[in-house]
C-alpha cells in the first residue's frame, strides 16, 4: 500500500507492507537512523518519536496508521545549526553515556517542556518513566532536562543571554 507521511516537514510518499512498524519505516525505508530500535515490546522507549505532536513508541505503531499524519524525529530538534536546549542539556549535564536511550529521552523531554516549561523533578521522572536507561541511573538525565528548562526562553529556543552566564 502507498502511504503519505510528513516526517520533519518533508513529505514522503512510499510503498509499504501494511505490517511495517513505524520505527522500521523511519530507520530502514527513509534512512533516519537517529530514532533507535530497542526492545520491540513498547517497554524501553528508545524508539519514541512524535506522531502529530504527541510522543509515541514507534515500535508499536504501524506505518499505515501514520498515513496522512505528521511525524517528528530526533533529527528535527536541531534547527538552523543550533541544538535544541534539551540536546545542550544532555551535553552539559552528561545526560548520556552509551547514548542508546538518548533519542527517545530527548523527544520525550522536548514534549514535556513544550507542555510544562518548568517541571519539577517528580514531573520529569514521571515523564520519562516509560523509558529505560542502563547507564546513568537517570540522575543526569533529570539534571539535563532541568538544565534545558532553566536555559530555554518561552518559545523553546535557547536564551543566548542565559547561556552566556
Amino acid at each position: 500500500m502507498r502511504v503519505n507521511i510528513e516526517v520533519n516537514g518533508v513529505n514522503y510518499s512510499e510503498e509499504i507492507e501494511p505490517r511495517l512498524l513505524l520505527v522500521h519505516f523511519i530507520r530502514d525505508q527513509i534512512g533516519l537512523t537517529g530514532t533507535h530500535w530497542g526492545c520491540d515490546t513498547s517497554n524501553c522507549g528508545t524508539c519514541v518519536l512524535w506522531l502529530d505532536d504527541l510522543p509515541v513508541k514507534s515500535c508499536t505503531v504501524l506505518t499505515a496508521m501514520a498515513d496522512g499524519h505528521r511525524v517528528r524525529t530526533v533529527e528535527d530538534l536541531e534547527q538552523g545549526g543550533e541544538l535544541d536546549p534539551v540536546q545542550k542539556g544532555f551535553m552539559q549535564e552528561h545526560g548520556l553515556q552509551c547514548g542508546f536511550c538518548t533519542p527517545g529521552m530527548l523527544m520525550t523531554a522536548r514534549a514535556l517542556l513544550d507542555r510544562n516549561p518548568n517541571p519539577s523533578d517528580l514531573e520529569i521522572r514521571e515523564a520519562i518513566s516509560g523509558q529505560i536507561c542502563r547507564c546513568t541511573g537517570y540522575e543526569n538525565i533529570v539534571r539535563a532536562i532541568r538544565w534545558a528548562a532553566a536555559n530555554s526562553s518561552s518559545n523553546g529556543a535557547l536564551d543566548v543571554a542565559e547561556v552566556a552566564q
Binding site: 522507549g45 510522543p55 513508541k57 515523564a127 523509558q131
Partner: peptide
Amino acid sequence: IADPIVRNR
C-alpha cells in the same frame, strides 16, 4: 496504567 507515552495511544 503503563507509562505516559503508552497512555498517549
